[in-house]
Design a protein around this nucleic acid. Structure first.
Length: 497
RNA sequence: GCCCCCAUCGUCCAGCGGCCUAGGACGCCUGCCUUUCACGCAGGUAACACGGGUUCGAAUCCCGUUGGGGGUGCCA
């Protein structure tokens, strides 16, 4: 396999590079990198790749480095770098370096390009895309560069790109931790552009150069990079750089249509998930489960255990569907695993109604905590405690009032029974007893004369909260208070059909 | 078109030649618990794409077919 002859980097520390005759191989610690380009907000797919790098590094006691690949001045939005870093931080994927920016290392790439030119590894090309396309169409419609300028002996200059002189024979391959041995026939690889006509170095050059410069031992990235890997390898060899020990091309995350997740169609913004009340530990745990599973089958678990168990060799190569339903499940599990105090703390940023809402949550935290799947679901559950009069939603009204049994009787009886309670009796147990009595008063009973609470409580719940579902009723009434409860029941009484 | 990769329940993962009448998780359905909802508990639903080999024996190995994905930029 492989006709590249570029395996010198295997197991060799990068510190040894450059020194003449310095061939003492030193076992290399693992060094991986996540190299986002700031052309968009961090999305779940990049998060998946970043996580794989981080897990691999932490598992093996190596380093997780960051590098900003901002070589495309046209598309880069520098302000997005902050978003990417913020999201990684949010996810808890702490990096171990001060991330270099490729836009500030251009001179290095230019030197490398000059060396390639001097060696004849690249050649100037002045073909436009249209010209190449036209020639391809004429000669049979094969896409890709046809090598037109390969032997024209053009001098480098403005407007002339530098193309890599790809070998016509042999194969280029590598060991992929996820996919096994992968290789491409060199003849299938076109003479790709290394430096643009405007002199700007391209992704492959900067990427390959920096990986070597940073001493990256394992390149872990998405499957969409598989095809560019032989180019990376060929380029690196031409530059005399040592190759990474191995690559790992992670499965792509796909949507219901089994297409690569896209910013346009799919919910992919990491920040959006955060803002919709997903916990970072849930996101990380779920992302780890895409393409991989722990040997013992325990899916929802602390990140430390995932770090222990995670192995790239166990990662599946097939694309994985990003299932929001399962993400929600994991999120709910993580929420329930929180201490009550922590739950309150982490839900607080999602409360838009200020201190009263926080106080309301505090009073019903235990009940709310086991009922929400995301943090944004918290406020609707306690909102009735902070508004003057709850808004009744259509579905609840229909369910509890329109279709309810003996509603007017129940409301009236509840008011009467509740009013009979003394102020010191306004606690869950006496309230329950009172409502039970009210149900009996209203005739909402079963064959044995027992109150049918599931039916009886509907109107009461809607009256005080506007909704037919919510935290347990007795506790809710207790927190709402005697006055407000009776007041809302009276209001409802006036609105009954 | 060409190149590369992939192929077990709807979804995610387990299975790496016999322990598989294929296991777990999500989802969905049923029941129990129960003051709604949720939790919890007990069940159920549902898959080895197809065809050839190899082998005493294949979900597991090989080949082909089909299907899916990715790439095919002077983007990264």
């Amino acid at each position: 396999m492989g006709g590249v002859g570029w395996g010198g980097g295997r197991g060799v520390a990068w510190g040894a590079r450059g020194g003449a005759g310095n061939v003492e191989p030193v076992p290399s610690p693992v060094r991986v990198r996540f190299a986002p380009s700031p052309t968009g907000f961090l999305h779940v797919g990049s998060g998946h790749s970043a996580l794989a790098n981080w897990l691999f590094a932490r598992h093996s006691g190596g380093e997780f480095l960051l590098r900003i690949e901002d070589t495309d001045a046209e598309r880069d939005r520098p302000e997005l770098i902050e978003n990417v870093l913020e999201m990684l931080q949010w996810l808890g994927l702490q990096w171990d370096n001060d991330p270099p920016r490729q836009s500030q290392r251009r001179a290095l790439y230019e030197d490398a390009a000059a060396k390639l030119l001097a060696d004849g590894a690249v050649y100037p090309c002045d073909c436009t895309g249209e010209q190449v396309q036209a020639r391809n169409k004429e000669s049979g419609g094969k896409p890709g560069y046809d090598g037109f300028c390969r032997d024209r002996g053009l001098e480098p200059g403005p407007g002339r790109a530098l193309r890599f002189r790809t070998p016509r024979e042999g194969r280029t391959g590598w060991t992929d931790l996820v996919r096994g041995e992968v290789s491409f026939a060199n003849s299938d690889i076109e003479d790709f552009v290394v430096v643009r006509g405007n002199g700007a170095p391209m992704f492959l050059l900067a990427n390959c150069y920096d990986d070597a410069d940073m001493g990256i031992t394992h390149v872990i990235r998405g499957e969409d990079h598989v095809n560019s890997t032989p180019k990376y390898l060929l380029l690196g060899a031409a530059l005399g750089l040592a190759a990474p020990e191995a690559f790992a091309h992670m499965p792509l995350l796909v949507n219901e249509g089994r297409k690569k997740l896209s910013k346009r169609r799919d919910d992919v913004s990491m920040a959006d998930y955060r803002d919709r009340g997903y916990l970072p530990e849930a996101m990380v745990n779920y992302l780890a489960l895409l393409g991989w599973g722990p040997a013992d089958g325990v899916e929802v678990r602390p990140i430390t255990e995932i770090v222990e168990q995670y192995r790239l060799e166990d990662v599946n190569a097939a694309p994985a569907f990003f299932d929001q339903k399962k993400l929600s499940f994991v999120n709910a599990e993580k929420i329930r695993a929180l201490s009550t105090e922590e739950f309150i703390e982490r839900a607080t940023p999602f409360l838009t109604r200020g201190e009263p809402a926080v106080a309301a949550l505090r009073s019903l935290a235990v009940e709310v905590q086991e009922r929400v799947r995301t943090l944004v679901e918290v406020e609707p559950m306690i909102e009735f405690l902070v508004v003057d009069q709850p808004e009744v939603d259509e579905a609840s009204w229909t369910k509890a009032i329109v279709k309810g049994k003996a509603v007017p009787e129940m409301v009236a009886a509840t008011i009467a029974r509740l009013e009979a309670l003394g102020a010191e009796e306004w606690t869950p147990a006496p309230i329950e007893a009172a409502v039970r009595q009210a149900a009996v008063d209203a005739g909402i009973v079963n064959a044995e004369g027992e109150p049918q609470l599931s039916k009886a409580q509907g109107p009461v719940r809607v009256a005080i909260s506007g909704r037919s579902v919510g935290p347990p009723l007795w506790e809710s009434l207790a927190v709402l208070g005697r006055e407000r409860t009776i007041d809302r029941l009276r209001t409802m009484q006036g609105q009954l059909p």
